[in-house]
Design a protein around this nucleic acid. Structure first.
Lengths: 377, 377
DNA sequence: CTGAAAGCGCTTACAG
DNA sequence: CTGAAAGCGCTTACAG
């Protein structure tokens, strides 16, 4: 072996990376042919395509993500910005489950999820701008939809493919997926009415979120329709507000016989207040939560809750997001119509899990029941 | 205005992107000078640097991530592969909180987290290989450490900067952060011993995880040291096994007066069994969980638990991961020692949150207490 | 169907 | 301190 120093092309020195050039050399073709072959595009004969793929496999070639992106290919990444403190996110069962569902579908399609935690809505919009400028994501998932949400306009202006989680309405020209909160409210109120309740209170979360508004409206309307006494008590965010609001409605001249809470966390805080006031659940006051979780299932008694499986919600969002991205990509190449990017909203139908906190006949739980409930989550 | 068609350099057509070439033209310098200026590197005078930065700002230039990566710069991304089903991840309070903590620190450093859910350990290792080949991540965070973990060797061989979450030991030459489970076990057992318990059972989770082993060993050792009757019951994964195991220890000739569970989910299932057997907590049997969460805090009675704040754990892991990445980058450029990548392990000290499930004097909780507890999570 | 080339936007030696 | 050039690894028209 002669030391062929001057002949040897010197790379950066690490020299391990296999590139399409290596494959091309071995196959006796040009790197363009390799590109066509590995991307399943026409332009090479089946025989050479086979040979090229074989060599690529042999050499354990991996496409350079950066190079592909630089050449204009999709970056296979979905972005999600969260404008909430880590502690708040961490305390929410919803977040982890939603992310897990997103991840599952995105991972299977070889997409990755890029998340970022920011301090404010301005910082969130700024992140969208930068991501767009850097071409860092193919699409973004927008969560925590509000009324008059400034993020919608910003994304529209940018022309960034995006999916809104929330609705209906208020998502501008962007597509959306959302849980039908009107239907959820109907399920709850009708369930309570069937059990004979006529005075129902709703302890409501932050009014700035769209779904809260939705619930407020439907709750009021259904009360009128069914001839029930429906009162609403605003509690703002979190457990402390819910505890206060619960105490408040208990002091009403004619206290409710059922209370509906906007989240599992709130329902638990409310239930604790009932316990401390020695009001039995459900005999004294029935309790319902808009959010199901291990918290509601594990409570004593287990709490009747809207089941919308956050994991499933995440899967639905990811699936729709990928459609939107595909449609946007298709529109760029083929100049066809764009069915996927339209402002179509997709609805997820909620269900009501009836438990002992409203139905006395479902009395005692055994450990086995509980275990089964948790496993089935 | 004359239509200068032939003069106009035709790009891909979208033509919106601002590049360093645009800045260079405006500043009357070469693009190399712009690169040096925006990266704060020597090679340009302060005056021209200022001018360049000014123009970059004016033009709202954003560096192309792909181009930087292709040219060898860090991709500013940390990867994490999860070999568990989405449903399982979603049901765990730990996951969401840990991710939120990771995100917070990574986001602040302008890093992003890339996650992927896979089916098996082999698929996980394969993902590491591909990410490494694609140069898609600067480092990876390895979770769910096992004994004889094949992932450790794979990452070492790859030379991929990585951080192991778990320990002590069994992380090969890779750095690690972990919660001191021996200390946690000591806290629990001593707390119970002080309350006068002499027969303590431990309902243990999956034995393949390292931390389970760690707890097993320490539990046994402490029992001997303190002269306690310590029995261990293996329950495998999840709530169903824990319920079975709890029933099992209750049938012992001399049943324990305290049971320690490996997770919040397991503790809840165990508590439900106790309830169904009409064993009061803590008077009949005291209950402790190795994992704190809204589940343990919200239980009736609230459950004494090891507090290790999953959010904080995530933050610690992210901080260490960034150190490791910096050290690896430094080692490549400056040929100094590499203090950051060493197999150093960093310990997180656990605390015990004592609640009514062990201490009868902490009896009734009010809604306000609960609210405060949840907020402080 | 195949080859040679330009281009994506940056970084990094290497001369002046 | 500055300029001109090569290179990162791929994709995409555009000729043959």
């Amino acid at each position: 072996m002669t030391s062929s120093r001057p002949e040897q092309p010197r790379g950066t020195g690490r020299g391990k990376r296999v590139t399409i050039a290596d494959i091309a050399r071995r196959a006796g073709v040009t790197s363009a042919a390799v590109s066509l072959a590995v991307n399943g595009r026409p332009g090479v004969s089946d025989a050479t395509r086979e040979r090229i793929l074989e060599i690529a496999r042999e050499l354990r070639w991996e496409p350079s993500h950066a190079a592909r992106a630089l050449a204009g290919a999709p970056v296979k990444t979905v972005g999600m910005v969260l404008a909430r403190p880590a502690e708040v996110l961490g305390a929410e069962a919803f977040f982890g489950a939603f992310v897990a569902g997103l991840q599952e579908v995105l991972s299977a399609a070889d997409y990755s999820l890029q998340m970022k935690i920011v301090e404010s809505t301005e910082a969130e919009i700024d992140t969208y701008r930068r991501w767009f400028g850097q071409r860092r994501v193919d699409g973004v998932v927008l969560v925590d939809l509000r009324l008059q949400d400034p993020r919608i306009g910003a994304l529209e202006e940018l022309g960034q493919p995006a999916l809104v989680v929330g609705g209906p309405g208020h998502h501008g020209s962007l597509p959306s997926v959302y849980v039908d909160d009107a239907e959820a409210t109907r399920l709850i109120v009708e369930h309570l009415a069937e059990l004979g309740h006529t005075r129902i209170a709703r302890v409501a979360g932050t009014a700035e979120f769209l779904h809260t508004m939705q619930r407020n409206t439907t709750f009021r309307r259904l009360g009128e329709e069914l001839g029930l006494e429906c009162v609403q008590q605003d509690a703002g965010f979190g457990a402390a507000g819910a505890a206060r609001a619960t105490a408040e409605v208990l002091r009403l001249p004619a206290p409710p016989t059922a209370i509906v809470f906007d989240s599992d966390e709130m329902a638990l805080a409310g239930a604790a207040v009932l316990r401390s006031c020695e009001v039995p659940i459900p005999e004294g006051v029935a309790v319902v939560s808009y959010e199901d979780s291990p918290l509601t299932r594990g409570h004593t008694p287990p709490i009747t809750a809207i089941r919308r499986s956050a994991v499933e919600y995440g899967r639905a969002a990811a699936t729709r997001m990928l459609e939107v991205i595909d449609a946007a990509a298709g529109r760029r190449t083929a100049a066809t119509g764009d069915p996927g990017t339209s402002a179509e909203a997709r609805v997820i139908e909620p269900q009501l899990a009836v438990r002992a906190s409203t139905d006395p006949s479902l009395g005692g739980t055994t450990g086995a029941d509980l275990a089964a409930g948790l496993d089935a989550s």
